[in-house]
Amino acid sequence: MADVPSDAPEHCPGTSSDQAGKTSACQGCPNQNTCASGAVKAPDPAIEEIRLKMTSVKHKILVLSGKGGVGKSTFSAHLSHALASDDSTEVALLDVDICGPSIPKMMGLEGEQVHQSGSGWSPVYVEDNLAVMSIGFLLSSPDDAVIWRGPKKNGMIKQFLRDVDWGEVDYLIVDTPPGTSDEHLSIVQYLSSAGIDGAVIITTPQEVSLQDVRKEIRFCEKVKLPIIGVIENMSGFVCPKCKNTSQIFPPTTGGAQRMCEELNLPLLGRVPLDPRIGKSCDEGKSFLTEVPDSPAAMAYQSIIRKIKDYCSHSSIKGSVTVDLE
């Protein structure tokens, strides 16, 4: 686990890196000898602490995509809204996109701050049963850039999982940044003992996106993370005036459907482009309640039903093993 002691220098490779204690940055670090001895390569005790913390969380779902800007945060936000529309369901939404947190804005929580309580950080509540946590709540201004290398991002993710007072939760939705790097490895590793129900993969129809998404699927296979299914977002645009459909992001290689057939994965559904989705996100509202009878909202609802079904049948054993690096 790439982890950085608070007194480590800026370029600390992380205590569990092969380079721990050996890089030029390690010269003069008070932890150099410990790191070089390999003593810290034992499993991170935080994994066990997180397992205990997560015993009050029934289902954990990751929202992933190799590609950026395909709608991960939009989907995460709407999945959370939809699940929380049932008053008896407790939902938590965790944003682990450390450098580009979009969730606060999409949930209408921009400018909110996290409070410290006796039992940890309190998440910010949209409704009584919908809690949100994001690094956005820890920044003092919307211009603040989080210019962090991997180890610091990992430390933050660990804190989000271990130190946030989530309470009793039915669904924990984790929104991720694009790629297959620090954040993804960390969230999977930290939740390895607690168990993850599975990942929802988002793509857009064109090959430039699918080629990155295939890598993300490969990542899931490598870390043995089950895939709940794939969602094709921005799938066609219906002109509000003439009602003709245009393929703005053309599925030149058969889109998500062909990819799912080839990789034997369920296609959960397709969501068309609708200018009102982006607008709702900018205003921090739920598109599903703003325009409930639109084709896009109906597509969302059908996908969300499938995810709920999946979770009610999934029996996580909590043994996602990660032996990368």
Binding site: A2, G14, G150, S181, F219
Partner: peptide
């Protein structure tokens, strides 16, 4: 393999 994921943490990318 074009589908291979580059599952690398920061130092390797750097």
């Amino acid at each position: 393999d074009p589908d291979e994921a580059v599952v690398w943490r920061g130092p390797k990318k750097s």
